[in-house]
């Protein structure tokens, strides 16, 4: 079971890399230059390029879906083997984070057709998966504080979806900022990018609230205090506040547009800080 999970994990890495590569290929305007033109058939290649790019783009999305499915399989197999949700160490959590990112990204891509988003979101997912390869994938038994199946599952499952949503929001916000600062025709309009950013924050913001609240519920049970200013707790609150700031700034005169997009970029930085926080600070979350 664990072997199968590892194979599915490797397949997911391959699929994400291939999807990213195909997105790059599909994004290059092959006008006047193409691999085929080198072979002396330039005219034909130029005419065929829009169709070629469209096909490549579709393949890239299919590969993204495949990566998601492989990762789903890897997580399910691991859950069966371990007997609890794959949420108890950084290896499992990195896979789950990549899974959440892909899930939310694929949803928004299906809804808005945003090939450019792949350049920002897929590297994050790939980075998380590659990072996971450096970690031990042994299944370790749960220490007493984590022995709460219900809360472990919900608290962390909601967290990875929230983080995934924030990654997508980050991608859309960066595209928004790129569009503000350069004349590019291949990006969606400002209003679409703003809507995607806002909608993904709409997913992530209440979910992060739920993560913090469930964390407090659990902390009250296991540690005897719903709030201890534990660094990970506090960092997640900082993240939530930054997105709260975004929600207020976005509808304020003089703060909508670029400025509120920067909030989302800052929020993502805070998300990553919260995620990797165990390396910067010690605290009650130190087992993760």
């Amino acid at each position: 079971m664990l072997e199968l999970s590892r194979y599915a994990f490797i397949a997911a890495i391959a699929a994400v890399s291939a999807a990213l590569a195909l997105h790059v290929v599909a994004a290059i305007p092959w006008r006047g230059f193409s691999v085929l033109s080198l072979a002396g058939r330039g005219a034909m290649a130029t005419e065929a390029s829009p169709a070629f790019r469209a096909t490549t783009g579709r393949f890239a999305i299919t590969l993204g879906v495949n990566a998601f499915l492989f990762l789903t399989a890897a997580l399910i197999l691991r859950t069966i083997e371990a007997g609890h949700g794959p949420f108890s160490n950084m290896y499992e959590f990195s896979l789950a984070f990549a899974w959440g990112t892909l899930a939310i990204y694929l949803y928004f891509d299906a809804r808005y057709r945003l090939p450019a988003m792949a350049f920002l979101v897929l590297p994050v997912a790939l980075g998380l998966l590659l990072y996971a390869t450096t970690l031990s994938d042994e299944i370790a038994p749960l220490v007493p504080a984590l022995q709460n199946d219900l809360l472990l599952t919900i608290h962390v499952a909601v967290a990875i979806l929230a983080y995934g949503a924030f990654t997508v929001a980050f991608g859309a916000a960066v595209l928004y900022l790129i569009r503000s600062h350069s004349e590019v025709d291949w990006l969606p309009s400002h209003s679409v990018l703003d809507e995607v950013t806002y909608r993904s924050v709409m997913v992530g913001f209440p979910m992060l609230a739920l993560v913090i609240i469930l964390g407090a519920v659990w902390a009250e049970i296991a540690w005897g205090a719903y709030w201890s200013w534990d660094p990970k707790e506090t960092a997640s609150l900082v993240t939530w506040l930054i997105y709260g700031g975004y929600l207020h700034a976005r509808v304020m005169r003089g703060w909508s547009g670029d400025r509120s997009a920067w909030f989302v970029v800052g929020g993502f930085a805070a998300t990553m800080f919260t995620y990797f926080g165990n390396y910067f600070f010690s605290g009650l979350h130190s087992y993760a």
Binding site: P231, A235, L241, G245
Partner: peptide
């Protein structure tokens, strides 16, 4: 004011984590 307070709180909390 709300925005300023939110950002100030976030900054203070960040100090508390770092």
């Amino acid at each position: 004011l709300a925005l300023v307070l939110i950002l100030a709180l976030a900054a203070v909390l960040l100090i508390g984590t770092i």
